[in-house]
Amino acid sequence: MKACLLDSPSPIETNPLALRDAPDPEPAGDQVRVRVRACGVCRTDLHVVEGELEPRKSPVIPGHQVVGTIDKVGDRVTRLRAGDRVGIPWLHRTCGVCDYCRAGRENLCEQASFTGYVVDGGYAEYALAPEDFVYPIPAGVADEQAAPLLCAGIIGFRSLRLSGITPGGRLGFYGFGAAAHVAIQVARHWKVEVYALTRDVRHQRLWSWVRCGPAAPLPSLPGSSTPPSSSRPQGSWCPLP
């Protein structure tokens, strides 16, 4: 298969990922093999590629927002079958027996492995994952649209929960990127009043899209034309209508 491999971490400006041939992975035991159709690009991938996270596998194929169709299953797979559309997220596998796992806090499992970091991920034509750690992708959501839901979406959702926000409350986003542009839709669904603090006007372009929809014209980038009239000076809060 074709895959983007990271041999050793280095600044992204040096193009550390190499597209080359790699062996097709074979599913074993409880694993499913996914024929990858789309893979989201996350800032965590950048931390892996540039070495801000200590390397755990080398070479490694990054990518943990993987959407595709199962094409092969291991001999202990019972629920899923070839043809099922699934998503492979960051949390690749947990031990299931440690104190954290038994307390419903498997996100903190000390034996956890992570897709695209500890094991190969989705910057490739095929990827493996345990049957119990993949998600069915909602029907009607295109592959490319679904990919960012698998980390930007899920981690943003967990962050909303941990923030303690409740319906009718007020919420502030520090920065407004992939996760926030999904989380704000959840917040609005929960009838939450939302504010955002962004570094510059380019980030405000995204909430303009969220507010007005994809058909609305986006404000231009700074330097290229007049900033949007709704932009605020650097360091000020923007209420998001």
Binding site: G87, P89, W90, L91, G104, R105, E106, N107, L108, A112, F114, D132, F133, Y135, P136, I137, P138, A139, G140, V141, Q145, L149, L150, G153, I154, I155, F157, R158, R161, V182, Q185, V186, H189, P214
Partner: peptide
């Protein structure tokens, strides 16, 4: 990170809203 329950709950909500 997140739990699998987070993911299941979020994807169900994402389809319901629906999230773009």
């Amino acid at each position: 990170n997140n739990t699998r329950q987070d993911g299941q709950d979020f994807l169900r909500l994402a389809a319901e809203i629906p999230i773009r």
